[in-house]
């Protein structure tokens, strides 16, 4: 029988590791349960980022989250990348490796964006085949996240939740359910986020992501800034009830506040872990004031700037 979280640990409430917090974490050793790293920022590093990561990995559990696997692309898988991913996982003792249900580029190029794929039988079998290969190379189940998306394809014959569920079952991989992404996409594509979360195979959910987004009036953008809004917390609560609790992590990538503020935000999750609490239907309303700022960038990339004396 399938074990909850595919047998992976529930690490508790974690924070995405960002360069601006390096000094604070090393100096204060905050009581955060675990850290998630952006794999690509560390896999080639022979400088301070890698050294800081090694120090942090001595004290905290580490999970690796990638943005360039491009599992949905029709380009061949990058074996060199996978080898490096595996060796980083070994060296920092990563609990698991995750990436996204998306493609990032084709014809040898990388747009550094998480681009959506059409959801149909042929794309499903394409992904399942590739996930199996990746799992063989990494020698562990891959964990894949539902991305935020801003368009849908005419070629789709199934909903995203149907696609993600079948993909997880058929490829025997894990899921990283980003409840903010579910919410963002539900507004953009006008579906019911509760039904999405209710359809997910609970035991395959290894991890959950929380984040803030930007309301552009006509659509939402997954900017990873600001606080988590109530409707997203309520999706989290529902997921918690369905899974019995999974490792949960807050992503904050733009206008990053001091570490304690980020940590405090993820600790709010405790308020939604009471099994007896009921999800209130009426609060599934976007409350944030429309912000039509054109500077909103989906999941901003984190680039590490050199330190020079």
């Amino acid at each position: 029988m399938l074990k909850p979280r595919l047998g992976y640990d529930n690490l508790g409430l974690g924070v995405g590791l960002r360069t601006v917090h390096f000094a604070h974490i090393l100096e204060h050793e905050p009581e955060v349960d675990w850290f998630e790293i952006i794999s690509e920022n560390f896999m080639d590093s022979e400088g301070r980022p890698r050294s800081v990561l090694e120090q942090i990995a001595e004290r905290y559990p580490i999970v690796m989250h990638g943005v360039s696997l491009s599992i949905g692309s029709t380009d061949p898988l990058n074996r060199d990348y996978l080898k490096k991913l595996k060796s980083l996982a070994e060296s920092v003792n990563a609990h698991w490796i995750s990436d996204h249900v998306c493609w990032t580029g084709v014809a040898g190029r990388n747009t550094h964006d998480l681009l959506p794929i059409p959801y149909n039988e042929s794309t499903l079998s394409h992904l399942v085949k590739r996930i199996r290969i990746v799992q063989e190379i990494l020698e562990r189940p891959l964990v894949l996240e539902n991305p935020s998306s801003y368009l849908e394809f005419k070629d789709s014959t199934m909903t995203e939740s149907e696609f993600v569920c079948r993909m997880a079952e058929e490829a025997e991989c894990g899921l990283l359910l980003d409840v903010n992404n579910v919410y963002v996409s539900s507004v953009n594509h006008e579906f019911d986020p509760v039904k999405y979360v209710e359809a997910i195979p609970a035991k395959r959910v290894v991890q959950c992501h929380l984040a803030g987004h930007t309301n552009c009036g006509t659509h939402l953008i997954d900017t990873h800034n600001g606080q988590v809004i109530d409707p997203v917390w309520e999706l989290f609560q529902l997921l918690h009830q369905r899974t019995g609790g999974v490792s949960t992590l807050l992503e904050w990538d733009a206008d990053i506040p001091p570490f304690p503020v980020v940590h405090e935000e993820v600790l709010k999750a405790k308020n939604y872990m009471d099994e007896k609490l009921h999800v209130s239907e009426k609060s599934f309303v976007e409350k944030a004031v429309a912000n039509t700022s054109s500077t909103a960038i989906p999941h901003p990339a984190s680039f590490i700037t050199a330190e020079v004396e």
Binding site: E40, N41, M43, D44, N78, Y81, R109, N110, F303
Partner: peptide, 10 residues
Amino acid sequence: PSTSYTLCEL
């Protein structure tokens, strides 16, 4: 255009 998995090469 970027052809690498890492932004360090961009």
